[in-house]
Design a protein around this nucleic acid. Structure first.
Length: 428
RNA sequence: GCCCCGAUAGUGUAGCGGCCUAUCAUACAGGCCUGUCGAGCCUGUGACACGGGUUCAAAUCCCGUUCGGGGCGCCA
């Protein structure tokens, strides 16, 4: 007989023989009756064992979180208050769990962050935690569907590279046979090269590595970057595409999982379009109105972004960043080269996406590299892609973990990462 | 890289110089209980991160080490 998921028990009439697989979440032993709360990915049910001393004996020896196969009969008018009920006719222990559990799945005690992540698989068995990853998957699916509709090609670019991408951020060094190499901090240079390769719309979902020794609720040393690049495009078109991506991702999540998420206490944020836009100078003005003096050309500190973000409802763009704080491949404004055709997508004080129209002229690119103190020789493989007909282009990189954090209102980015890589953690 | 803070049973905590043979909850082990559902009741096992110092006396105070948390910078 084939098995049924616990969720699907609800569609039965009652009286059917069923086989269910799952984990023994709770085992309650009374004198003449034993209850097992069985959990699978879809939910929990109560397995009732009575009038069968052999089975009761067997069940009384089980440990919590052991993996079981249960054969029994589905009871429509269950006595159980909390879950669908199955009367057990046979029970097979597929794999016993050791005791005591390092992290109880249902114990009414708090667990420290470190303990949780040292025992992450058990931590992830908690529905409230594993639903985060179903959500992340849905958001990404919504964005992928949009990309498909818009004619983007999904690509995979190298993660082991010969030069640091943008000069600024720290990179991880790796041994590459007899050479030194780095883990890519962004697919930026490669996706631009693909524009020159004649692919007009590329997107990539992949890991990005940053060796910064940061210790915050919004940084990881390895995160998932959703990157796009579009030929014959500009910053404005890139922003429109970004707005649509965020909207579609969160709408997909809301439509498919909204109710379920609510049961676990997650309040989903579906943004209103269009997202408001402000310029870098607007930001400075807000700060000055709040009595903060600010030097043109500096980046906003997180404290300053909190002030700016508090004036804005939900997602908003900050456009026209100064050349000084943007990477070399960012195009300057024709009428004011101290500013760039760039943008960030913000949610309150959190930066979700960074993007821009890019430099497409090879001489201009070399000049910008030098101005940023980088050696163009190290970027020859990249610059050569610009020499033989590089279209004007624009794009962005969006942090999937940050977007998921915002969608579900989760404070710490590590909670939306299965096995986070942070300042101190490389295992599990 | 800088600045704070923390480390007590499997888990989470109380204790902050002598009343500590270390509290409580939960978990775990055993027992009682004819349907539980945060079950209940009884019994039991189980811990002061490591090294040095101060003191008649250290879980408690000081220094160092290790591990971790938060914030800043940087960014997605």
């Amino acid at each position: 007989m084939s098995s049924i998921s616990i969720e699907d028990l609800g569609s039965l009439k009652g009286g059917e023989s069923v086989v269910i697989y799952g984990w023994a979440q709770e085992i309650k032993i009374l004198k003449n009756i034993t209850f097992i709360v069985l959990r699978d990915y879809s939910g929990t049910c109560q397995v009732t064992i009575k009038g069968n001393p052999e089975l009761i004996e067997k069940a009384s020896k089980l440990s919590r979180e052991s993996v079981l196969k249960i054969s029994g009969t589905f009871k429509k008018d269950a006595i159980s208050k909390s879950a669908p009920e199955v009367t057990c006719s046979d029970l097979t222990l597929l794999n016993a769990s050791a005791t005591p559990l390092p992290v109880g799945i249902t114990d009414p005690v708090e667990v420290d962050f470190e303990t949780r992540f040292n025992n992450r698989v058990l931590d992830l068995r908690k529905p409230k935690n594993n639903i985060i990853f179903a959500s992340k998957s849905k958001i990404l699916w919504g964005i992928r569907k949009l990309m498909e509709e818009e004619g983007f090609i999904e690509v995979q670019t190298p993660k082991i590279v010969s030069s640091a991408t943008e000069g600024g951020a720290e990179v991880f060094r790796v041994k590459y046979h007899e050479k030194d190499a780095f883990l890519n901090q962004s697919p930026q240079l490669y996706k631009e090269m693909l524009i020159s390769a004649g692919i007009p719309k590329v997107f990539e979902v992949g890991p990005a590595f940053r060796a910064e020794e940061h210790n915050t609720n919004r940084h990881l040393n390895e995160f998932t970057s959703i990157d796009i690049e579009m030929a014959f495009s500009d910053d404005d078109k890139a922003m429109q595409m970004l707005e649509l991506s965020v909207y579609q991702g969160l709408t997909e999540l809301m439509d498919t999982m909204g109710k379920e998420l609510e049961q676990y206490g997650y309040r989903i944020v579906v943004p209103k379009r269009p997202f408001p836009r402000m310029t870098y100078q607007d930001g400075i003005r807000i700060l000055e109105e709040n009595g903060i003096s600010f030097n043109f050309g500096d980046d906003f500190s997180s404290e300053q972004l909190k002030i700016i973000g508090s004036k804005m409802d939900g997602f908003y763009f900050i456009t026209g960043w100064p050349e000084k704080v943007r990477p070399f491949y960012t195009m300057q404004k024709e009428d004011d080269p101290s500013l760039t055709k760039s943008f960030d997508l913000q949610y309150k004080e959190l930066e979700v996406t960074s993007g821009a129209q890019r430099v497409h002229n090879p001489e201009a690119l070399i000049k910008r590299l030098k101005e940023k103190g980088l050696n163009p020789e190290n970027f020859e493989y990249y610059i050569s892609a610009f020499r033989y007909g590089m279209p004007p282009h624009a794009g962005w990189g969006l942090g999937l973990e940050r977007l998921t954090q915002i969608a579900l209102g989760i404070h710490n980015i590590r909670d939306v990462t299965l096995f986070p890589r942070d300042r101190t953690r490389v295992s599990p």
